[in-house]
Design a protein around this nucleic acid. Structure first.
Length: 595
DNA sequence: AGGAATACTTAGAAACCACCTA
DNA sequence: TAGGTGGTTTCTAAGTATTCCT
């Protein structure tokens, strides 16, 4: 792995001393990116840290049996469940008003797993989910969450949460106190996959200390397991960044506890990611020429590789690893596209060689797009589809590992996902250049920023469900706008009459009155403009999620530079969390930064 | 070579919370 | 002062990519 040098400019020593002094005085303090500038060079042996100490995870709260007045009925008759069976039943009861629980797969999986937890006589009695009545349980939990909502801030729960955060929410890595992202063990419950997931409703087991692997320094104070229990293992592996791991029972996947995005270890990696994307910028034309050549190759595997790469580059598709069938929802990316996911039109809507994409991508989000492509691509696609069934792979001679191996040969550290990062960031930079006009006011500039951001979100197909309250809140906004317009026309009339008064009697007092009234009009016009901008922004945004690209694809230095160039306060673009995550960029980028 | 295991990033939904307004 | 509203935070699933193993 390549290590980036942290020899940053002039300020370095100054910050270094400040930080050391602070460090000595307070022993430990919460660190920002700046504190790392003076850090000694990183190790080059692949280690990620040299000292790591933490308190371990917060285990999920133990199950509290239901009060006896909350009853369960089977086939109309009340039935007392064993604690094990009752706990699983409560998971279902808590989800009762979610349409999820009505799905056949969900019910089947749930019932099968629930029965595994039942005592033998329960098992023989409870044989049909339809005869189970969880309503009292459901009501009970609804009432509980209502009660919790009603409780005030200074409540015990909030205090307890704060205590847990302070005690378990931080660790020490290489002399710095760092925030941990997810220090709580995932509680048991019913698995909810995205989309049409074959395992929805399965029981997500409670994680015990015996399932947990701790990773920390040999010389550190090891986290203690709860009394009477043991960790599965305590290891000391500084080639990885995680503090805690366990294996989850639904997919058999490993879960990790890791540091917050504001941490040095995540920030460095993020920086590195954008540097790789900038390297791609330098050679992307060469690569494009290369794959265009490869469309003519004699070898099928090379043609497929070249067409797939063209899609990844042009449409920002994901790589598309193979997935095990039946283990998760049926979704695809570029390399795993099937014949049924595209349609070819030699001519459509006045355009030649149109490819229509329609498939479910990550998180079962639909990707639908009609794109005119070059004739060679079109002919190749026809060739790839010859003599194939709809469910056959479009690129049968290609997978992500072949593609990435090829990319590595073209550029250091180049993989398929780098194209997404590159195309997202370069699009933002171009759009900002294009959309920002110097004489716009602040809200208009921010609208321009959001529009640039939106262009990227559309490119990356970052969608969200239209908020349930969208129509109503839009109406409310329109009401406000109408009211503001009325106010404005009133104010304008006031100006007129004041001017008339002034004509009749040239007097300081009247002159002043005209000025004030004019000011009022200006203020109202500005307010109206702000509201209208807000309405436009919201309308254009209703099904698009900006957050994902902002957080994961856009080189933050582009935004920082834009803010500096136009005198926009950074707070208008990044909230507190985002500013913490991008502290390195805020610190680093000048107004002339070029991605 | 290819599949399994591992580590890490990316993702949208839900929960939470601060603020406003009727 | 409740109740709506919209931004923020949390949650954890679902990807990508590399490494390990046979």
């Amino acid at each position: 792995m390549k290590i980036f040098s942290f020899s940053c400019h002039v300020l370095t020593n100054h910050i270094c001393n400040l930080c050391i002094n602070h460090f000595l005085l307070t022993n430990l303090h919460y660190c920002t990116w700046l504190d790392y500038r003076w850090e000694e060079e990183r190790a080059t042996d692949g280690s990620k840290w040299s000292f790591l100490e933490h308190k371990g995870p917060v285990m999920a709260a133990p199950y509290e049996p239901l009060p006896s007045n909350v009853r369960f009925f089977y086939d109309g008759k009340q039935m007392k469940l064993s604690p094990e069976a009752e706990e699983v039943a409560t998971f279902f009861a808590k989800m009762l008003d979610h349409e999820y629980t009505t799905k056949d797969t969900f019910q089947k999986n749930f019932f099968k797993d629930w029965r595994k937890e039942m005592a033998s006589e329960e098992k023989s009695k409870i044989t049909d989910l339809k005869k189970c009545n969880f309503n009292e349980m459901g009501e009970y939990f609804k009432a509980q969450s209502e009660a919790r909502k009603a409780m005030t801030k200074d409540d015990k729960l909030v205090m307890e949460n704060e205590r847990l955060l302070q005690e378990y929410g931080f660790c020490i890595m290489d002399n710095h106190k760092e925030r941990i992202a997810n220090f709580r063990i995932e509680p048991p419950g019913l698995f909810r996959g995205r989309g049409d997931h074959p395992k929805m409703g399965m029981l997500k087991r409670r994680i015990r200390p015996e399932d947990i692997i701790i990773n920390c320094s040999k010389g550190s104070k090891h986290p203690k397991p709860p009394p009477g229990t043991k960790w599965k293992e305590v290891r000391h592996d500084n080639k990885v960044t995680w503090l805690v791991s366990w294996t989850e029972n639904i997919q058999g996947a490993i879960k990790y506890i890791m540091l917050n995005p504001s941490s040095r270890i995540k920030g460095e990696k993020d920086w590195q990611k954008y540097e790789t994307a900038r390297n791609l910028k330098k050679c992307v034309e060469r690569l494009r020429n290369q794959y265009r050549e490869d469309w003519k190759s004699k070898e099928m595997r090379i043609r497929q590789r070249a067409v797939a790469l063209y899609f990844i580059d042009k449409l920002a598709l994901r790589a598309g690893n193979e997935k095990e069938e039946g283990e998760s929802a049926d979704t695809v990316g570029c390399c795993s596209l099937r014949v049924e996911h595209i349609n070819l039109y030699p001519e459509k809507d006045g355009q030649d060689f149109v490819v229509e994409f329609d498939f479910l991508g990550k998180d079962s989000i639909r990707y639908y797009n009609k794109v005119p492509v070059e004739k060679r691509v079109f002919k190749n696609l026809q060739l790839f589809m010859e003599n194939k069934q709809p469910e056959d792979d479009l690129f049968d001679r290609l997978n992500t590992s072949i593609l990435n191996k090829h990319l590595q040969e073209l550029m250091d550290d180049l993989t398929a996902k780098v194209f997404r990062t590159y195309n997202a960031s370069i699009t933002l930079q171009q759009q900002l250049k294009e959309l920002t006009s110097p004489d716009e006011n602040l809200p208009a500039k921010i609208l321009s920023y959001n529009r640039a951001n939106r262009a990227v979100a559309i490119l990356c197909n970052h969608q969200r469900a239209q908020p349930k309250t969208f129509e109503k809140s839009m109406q409310n906004l329109q009401t406000k706008i109408d009211a503001k317009k009325d106010q404005l026309s009133d104010a304008k009339r006031d100006v007129k009459s004041a001017k008339a008064d002034l004509k009749v009697r040239r007097d300081e007092k009247f002159k002043k009155a005209v000025e004030t009234k004019k000011k009022a009009v200006e203020r109202l016009e500005e307010q109206l403009m702000k509201l209208e901008v807000q309405a436009t922004d919201r309308e254009e945004n209703k099904q698009i999620a900006l957050g994902t690209s902002k957080l994961n694809y856009l080189d933050p230095r582009i935004s920082v530079a834009w803010c500096k160039k136009w005198g926009i306060p950074i707070e208008k673009i990044y909230n507190k969390t985002q500013r913490e995550k991008f502290a390195w960029a805020i610190d680093m980028a000048e107004d002339d930064y070029e991605f």
